[in-house]
Nucleic acid binder design. Structure first.
Lengths: 225, 225
DNA sequence: ATATGTGAATGAGTTCACAGCG
DNA sequence: CGCTGTGAACTCATTCACATAT
C-alpha cells in the first residue's frame, strides 16, 4: 500500500517533532553559555532523553553533526528552528483573559520563540479595555475582524469550557487551522484543522495514579495534630 | 525471559492511563445528562478516540461492560476513578503564585476531581499573606513545615525556571514523590520520584510545525544564514 | 581516536476482525 | 441479534551496536 508516487519523504515522526522543542531549549541554554559544540550524549542529558534517541531524531532533519566532534550549537539551533517553523513570526490570539489567559499573555516562553501575542479577546465587559502585558483586551464581537486584520494564524483558547466550541467554530470559519485548547472539552473541527489540547487536571490525575501505586511509603496518616 | 509464572498483570500501559481521565470526563458529562448506559462507540466519540482503542483500554481495568448492551455510566465512572486513585483525597501544594499559580488555584477541574489545593506558597513578600481562592499565601520558608503538616503528596511547581530545581530538591527531601512541573527546565530527581511536565510553549511549537506544512504553496523563502 | 548516522532487533501501542456472551 | 473483549496483525517508536566519516 505504499504509494510510489510520493516522492518527498518530508515526514518527520510525531514523536520526534514533539521532542524538538526540548532540544531547542537545551541548545539555547548552551548558546547562552557560549558553548560552541556539543556531543549527542551531552545534549541528550540536558534535554532529558537518551543519546541514541536524540541522534535518531536529529537524523530525520538531516546530517548536521560532525563525526568525531559533535554538533555545532548555533547551527543546530537554526536548523531545528527552521524545521519547527520558528524562523517566521507567528501571530497568536488568546481568547479568554482569565487567570490562565493572563498567565499565557505574560509567558516569556512565547515571545522568545517565534510567537507574538497579537490579540487578547474576552467576552466580559469588565475586562475588555484593560491593558495586559502591553495589549488592550478586545471584545469577542471583534473576534473575526481582529484575526483577519492582524493575520492571526494560531488561536489559544483559554475560555470556560462552555464557550470553547462556539469560539472554535468562529475562528475556524475565518480560516484559522491551528488551535491550542486549554478548555476541558473535546472540540469538533473539520478535517485539516489542528487542535492540540492541554488539560491541566489530566496531568494531575496521571500523577495520582502513580502515587497511588507507591503506597508502601510512610507519609500516609494525616493524623498528627 | 518472561516467566509464565507472573500471575497478576496489574500493569496498565502508560498510553491507557493517559487516556483514562479523558474517558472519565466524557462519562461525567453523560452522568449529568442522566444517561444510564453507553456503548463503546458513543463513549469513544465523546472522548475523541476510536472505539477499538477504548475497548482495549477498558479491558485493562477489567470486564465492566455488558455484551450486547454497553457500559453502565455510573459504574464505569466509579471504576475508572478508583483505578486513577481519585476516590481518595489528594492534598496538593502550589509553589509559585504568579498568574499561572493563581490560574491553577482557581481551576475548577482540580477540586471537582479528587484534588484539594491545600497550600499556596511563594517567595515574594509582596504576595505572601494574600488570599487567593480562599487560601492564604504562605512564605517559602514554611515549605517543608506546610507540606508535612497538611499531608501534601503532590506538589505543583509554577515558579520561575531559575527557582524550580531548588524547590524541587526541597520537596523531594521531605518525601514528596509526585511533582507537576510548569517551569521550563528539566528537573533532576532521584529514582522513585515522578515528574510530569507541562510546557506551554512546546505545544505552540508543535502547532507551528504543522501550520508551516499546510501553507499549501511553497513556503516563503527564508534565506539561509 | 572519537562520535555520528543508521540498519537491524526489540518493544510499545494501535487497529483489525471475529469469537463469544448477554 | 448487538456489542464487548481479545488474540493476531500491523504500525510506530525506542534501543542496540557498529560501520563510517572526520
Amino acid at each position: 500500500m505504499k504509494s510510489p508516487s510520493q516522492p518527498r519523504d518530508r515526514g518527520i515522526p510525531d514523536a520526534t517533532v514533539a521532542r524538538l522543542p526540548l532540544y531547542l531549549r537545551a541548545l539555547n541554554g548552551m548558546a547562552e553559555k557560549a558553548i560552541a559544540t556539543v556531543s549527542s550524549e551531552d545534549l541528550a542529558v540536558a534535554a532529558g532523553v537518551n543519546s541514541a534517541k536524540l541522534r535518531k531524531d536529529l537524523s530525520h532533519l538531516g546530517s548536521y553533526g560532525t563525526r568525531g566532534v559533535g554538533y555545532d550549537v548555533e547551527y543546530l539551533v537554526y536548523q531545528i528552528s527552521r524545521e519547527l517553523g520558528l524562523t517566521q513570526d507567528w501571530a497568536v490570539a488568546i481568547v479568554g483573559v482569565g487567570n490562565l489567559g493572563r498567565a499565557l499573555a505574560n509567558y516569556g516562553g512565547f515571545v522568545s520563540r517565534g510567537f507574538r501575542v497579537a490579540a487578547l479577546i474576552d467576552a466580559d465587559p469588565e475586562v475588555v479595555g484593560d491593558d495586559i502585558a502591553g495589549l488592550n483586551v478586545e471584545h469577542i464581537d471583534e473576534l473575526e475582524a481582529v484575526i483577519k486584520r492582524r493575520g492571526v494564524s494560531i488561536v489559544v483558547l483559554a475560555t470556560p469550557a462552555a464557550a470553547a466550541q462556539e469560539v472554535c467554530d468562529r475562528v475556524v470559519a475565518v480560516g484559522v487551522t491551528s488551535i491550542l485548547n486549554f478548555a476541558p472539552v473535546v472540540l469538533s473541527v473539520p478535517d485539516g484543522v489542528d487542535v492540540r489540547k492541554v488539560d491541566l487536571s489530566i496531568e494531575l490525575q496521571i500523577l495520582a495514579f502513580h502515587e497511588q501505586r507507591k503506597a508502601g511509603g510512610p507519609l500516609m496518616a494525616v493524623d498528627s495534630q
